[in-house]
Nucleic acid binder design. Structure first.
Lengths: 210, 210
DNA sequence: CTTGCCATCGCATAATCATGTTATAGGTGC
DNA sequence: GCACCTATAACATGATTATGCGATGGCAAG
């Protein structure tokens, strides 16, 4: 089945250029091309596209804001960023917002269709320099840092638990009631997908969460 | 109070020499000097000495065997080995058997009395080269290897526990009843000086017991 | 053949934990 | 202000654990 898509790009020349590429390609169906994503939620509801192509620097609403908005209502639709920005801030803002791929504009002519194929197969196409940035960041921290999204308090409780402390001891140590300790540990179990102290401690130590 | 002691040494010249040193020293009382330790158990019962001086190479029974025999009936009486052997095997056999100190014969004239003082104060006098051997071995393995003397089964159970398994799961995994799992874990707690799963797991992982 | 250690199993009780449900107060973001 | 998240707290129930006591069979050392 032909994937359907919508393009958001404010520069008329580039928008027309991409539009031309897409309509000439008979395995892809372009549902629309807009100069800003202000109406993106309505577009999605109206056209039900398989994929979004998104510039970052657009008047009215940035592509990153647009991604954030889309992700509130739809966590799955692939969004491929098409942009000139290759700096850390833009790349990570986009990825954190929920972008599925990140193609620099200088690579569009050569890689756009393979990127679309890749993204439709569940991949995450990135320009080489972007991929490298992402890997480096992973190796450092950010994502790797707190893979289970534990809150600071939860991390604190888990650390104490991993030292061998009982609920009671943790409560005394952190000056909170034993029931509160329970609450935190309950949430920790949910986030770590475990069901006992030993599982949690084992996972925490081996994955260096503490 | 004057410490009392018994000497075992087969070489008559050396035995007389040591005997002379001891009787001339007025803060020590020599209860007897024998050429072999065959009657050592009776000697201990009869004389009730505070300390034993023990050669290794003696006819009839080696000093190491003698130490083993003594330790069966008395785990506390200090035994100082006096020997020419400074090889790994003899040293460790003697220590494993339960020797309290290890003095090479070439150091006897210079160190015997200070060694006796030290051993009576609960120390472990050793000739310098022996001390070094012992430290090196410690750093390698032997004692460091299984510092808590866990049996193979206990280690197995602890490993499973450290992976996050419950008693029930461990029982199934190792095809033993949950009560047996309890028994093993109880002993593990005693040996590790802990009182909960998390403490045990924490200790096990951090000290690389599993 | 006796003693001691290891592995096995059972039972009983009290303590602790796992889990669900509910609720309040402070902070953030829109 | 209204959602949403975080930290706090309480209560209840069933499950699991901690601990003590006791017992059997195998096996190795003395």
């Amino acid at each position: 089945m032909m994937p359907t898509l919508i393009l958001y790009e404010d520069n008329p020349l580039l928008r027309d250029s991409i539009q031309s590429m897409l309509v000439l390609h008979d395995s892809i169906k372009l549902l629309g091309a807009f100069e800003n994503p202000l109406e993106i939620i309505n577009h999605i509801k109206e056209f039900n596209p398989d994929l979004l192509l998104m510039d970052i620097d657009m008047p009215g609403m940035s592509g990153i804001e647009a991604v954030t908005k889309v992700r509130i209502i739809n966590k799955n639709i692939p969004i491929l960023m098409l942009t000139v920005f290759d700096d850390n801030q833009h790349v990570f803002d986009a990825i954190c917002a929920g972008a599925s791929g990140y193609l620099l504009k200088k690579h569009i002519s050569a890689k756009l269709f393979s990127a679309i194929d890749e993204i439709m197969e569940g991949g995450a196409p990135m320009s080489p320099s972007i991929a490298r940035m992402v890997l480096q960041a992973m190796q450092q921290k950010k994502i790797n840092d707190n893979p289970y999204q534990l809150t600071p308090k939860e991390k604190e409780v888990l650390t104490s638990l991993s030292k061998g402390n009982s609920y009671k001891m943790i409560g005394v140590e952190q000056a909170i009631s034993i029931d509160t300790v329970r609450s935190h540990i309950k949430k920790i179990y949910e986030k770590l997908h475990v069901h006992s102290q030993t599982e949690a401690v084992s996972k925490a130590i081996h994955e260096k969460l503490v």
